[in-house]
C-alpha cells in the first residue's frame, strides 16, 4: 500500500541524505520525494510517497523520528489528504495535431508554457490520476521529454 509521509526537519545541510539513506538502509522504497522550505526558513518539509504495509509504515515513521534533525513525522491518510503533483510534458506537434493537443490541454485545465515549431510544453498540476490521464492522452502524439515533481500534500481542514 502507498503511504504519503510528511517529515518536518531542521533545514540543515545533509538532512536529505540522512532521510534518503535511512529509507535505503532499512529497505523501504521511496516512490517520490519533494522537499522545500516551510514558512519558517529554518525548517523544511519533505513529502515522501513510499510503499509498504502498516508495520513498515510504523517502523519507518519511528526510524525517521529517531533522526536527530527530525522535528515531526506523520502519515497523511489518503481520505484526508489534499495533494498535488506537477509535471511538464514536451509533446511533439505538427500542423495537423496542434489543435487537438490544445483541446486536450484545455479539457484538463493544463497550460501551454512553451511553443516551438515542432513541440509544445504542457504544464499540468493536479492529483496523480489527473497527471497520469493527460500523459496517457498525449503519449500517442509523441512525448519528447517529460519531468514530474514529487507529490506534495497537506492534511485537509484544521491543524494536523
Amino acid at each position: 500500500m502507498k503511504h504519503t509521509i510528511s517529515v518536518i526537519v531542521e533545514n540543515k545541510p545533509g538532512v536529505l541524505s540522512r532521510v534518503a539513506g535511512l529509507f535505503a538502509r532499512r529497505g523501504f522504497n521511496i516512490e517520490s520525494l519533494a522537499v522545500g522550505v516551510t514558512d519558517d526558513p529554518s525548517v523544511s518539509r519533505m513529502t515522501i510517497v513510499a510503499e509498504g504495509d502498516e508495520r513498515d509504515l510504523e517502523q519507518i515513521t519511528k526510524q525517521l523520528h529517531k533522526l536527530i534533525d527530525t522535528l515531526k513525522v506523520f502519515d497523511i491518510p489518503r481520505e484526508l489528504s489534499a495533494e498535488r503533483e506537477l509535471a511538464l510534458i514536451k509533446v511533439a506537434v505538427n500542423e495537423k495535431n496542434r489543435g487537438e493537443i490544445t483541446q486536450i490541454v484545455e479539457i484538463f485545465r493544463a497550460r501551454i508554457i512553451d511553443v516551438a515549431e515542432d513541440s509544445m510544453t504542457v504544464e499540468i498540476t493536479g492529483e496523480e490520476s489527473k497527471v497520469e490521464g493527460i500523459i496517457k492522452l498525449l503519449r500517442r502524439f509523441g512525448i519528447k521529454e517529460m519531468v514530474r515533481g514529487g507529490k506534495i500534500a497537506l492534511q485537509r481542514g484544521g491543524a494536523e
Binding site: R55, E58, Q59, K62, Q63, H65, K66
Partner: peptide
C-alpha cells in the same frame, strides 16, 4: 527508551 524498538 527507543520507540523504534517497539514492534520492530
Amino acid at each position: 527508551i527507543d520507540p523504534a524498538e517497539i514492534g520492530k
